[in-house]
Simulated assay, not measured.
Amino acid sequence: MPSEAVLASRAVLDEVNRDQNLRYRLDQPLAGGMQSGAWLLSDEAGTMAVLKWSPNRAWADQIIRASTSVAVARQGGYPTPAWLTVGVTSDGLGYQLQEVVAGEPRDHLSLPVAAELAEVIEMQAGLDPDPQRSWSQYLNTWYRERWTSTVAAVRDVGGDDLVEACTRLLATHDDPDLPEGDLVHGDFRLSNVLFLGDRVAGVVDIEAVGSGSRVFDYATALDSRSADDAAIAFLVAAAVRAGGRGALARCLVHVVLDLVLFIRDNPATLTSPAGRAHELAQRVRLVSENL
């Protein structure tokens, strides 16, 4: 008997097919992604596509909004798959059909991989696809309004060493206004970057896209669980050139603390928040040594 996830995805696709006069069928789920379903599709003619949809109805408006930013990004040469169609089901679920891009994510951040990531992130400079959805403004607000409660919550799940590492990092560098004017992916992790051979073939899971500082995506890339020290040093240097030491410190601290709380709230990750916090504290210390 099909699982609830399969049945839900099939229901979404049935409505997409009906509304868009298509004949796709579900072939197989695609790996990765905690917050939305992703399926490889094909039709009778062998045409393939990817269906992505989110069970979070509050996210539907952002999926629609992101379609414009994706078009801007692609016009600027950014290697993210084209969105073929986008919409909202009668039940309020946002979806998009994307072109298929051949490639696989890497699970280790080596120096050559880091160089490829930096090349892609630098394509984001000046694209500014959605100034009203600014990651930089979001971070400024987060520090003003949520810092205290976030630190307390991370301590509650055993993240004292991470909090201390983050506090020291912030104290070491200036507290700048974060730059604006770039495209920000918002979740630029290795799992969302597809490689074909030694080159990046596509960047996926871009629904959270907005404007702000590309330093935020450097900070997210630094979260790779398996990484060479030389690769970390390379990305740190690239991020500093892009926005400065203080900007990287502020972005990285948000990324790591927010990740611990995401793990806490999503037990399906099968990762201990305390254990992940310990790993992230070590990464923050390594980044600090290179700043």
Rank of each mutant, 00 (worst) to 15 (best):
residue 100 V to G: 05
residue 103 G to S: 06
residue 106 R to H: 15
residue 106 R to Y: 06
residue 108 H to L: 14
residue 108 H to I: 11
residue 110 S to T: 14
residue 112 P to C: 05
residue 113 V to G: 02
residue 114 A to F: 03
residue 115 A to Y: 01
residue 115 A to S: 08
residue 121 I to G: 13
residue 123 M to K: 13
residue 124 Q to V: 04
residue 126 G to F: 09
residue 127 L to F: 06
residue 127 L to G: 11
residue 128 D to I: 06
residue 129 P to G: 06
residue 129 P to I: 03
residue 130 D to M: 11
residue 130 D to I: 03
residue 131 P to H: 13
residue 131 P to N: 12
residue 131 P to Y: 14
residue 131 P to R: 14
residue 132 Q to D: 15
residue 135 W to V: 03
residue 136 S to Q: 06
residue 139 L to W: 08
residue 139 L to S: 09
residue 140 N to C: 10
residue 142 W to D: 05
residue 143 Y to C: 08
residue 144 R to E: 15
residue 146 R to S: 12
residue 146 R to G: 04
residue 146 R to N: 11
residue 149 S to D: 15
residue 150 T to N: 09
residue 151 V to I: 15
residue 152 A to C: 12
residue 152 A to T: 12
residue 153 A to D: 03
residue 153 A to C: 02
residue 155 R to S: 15
residue 155 R to W: 07
residue 157 V to F: 04
residue 157 V to L: 08
residue 160 D to N: 10
residue 160 D to G: 05
residue 160 D to C: 06
residue 162 L to G: 08
residue 163 V to H: 10
residue 163 V to G: 07
residue 165 A to K: 01
residue 165 A to T: 01
residue 166 C to I: 07
residue 167 T to Y: 00
residue 168 R to E: 09
residue 168 R to P: 00
residue 168 R to V: 04
residue 169 L to T: 00
residue 171 A to P: 01
residue 171 A to E: 11
residue 172 T to Q: 12
residue 176 P to W: 11
residue 177 D to Q: 13
residue 177 D to S: 14
residue 179 P to R: 15
residue 180 E to Y: 04
residue 180 E to R: 12
residue 183 L to P: 04
residue 188 F to M: 04
residue 188 F to H: 06
residue 189 R to L: 01
residue 189 R to D: 00
residue 192 N to L: 01
residue 192 N to A: 00
residue 193 V to P: 08
residue 193 V to C: 04
residue 195 F to K: 02
residue 199 R to I: 06
residue 202 G to Q: 05
residue 202 G to D: 14
residue 203 V to P: 01
residue 203 V to C: 01
residue 204 V to I: 15
residue 208 A to W: 00
residue 208 A to P: 00
residue 209 V to C: 09
residue 210 G to V: 04
residue 210 G to D: 05
residue 212 G to D: 02
residue 214 R to Q: 11
residue 214 R to F: 10
residue 215 V to Q: 12
residue 218 Y to I: 04
residue 218 Y to G: 04
residue 220 T to K: 14
residue 220 T to F: 11
residue 221 A to C: 06
residue 221 A to N: 02
residue 224 S to A: 15
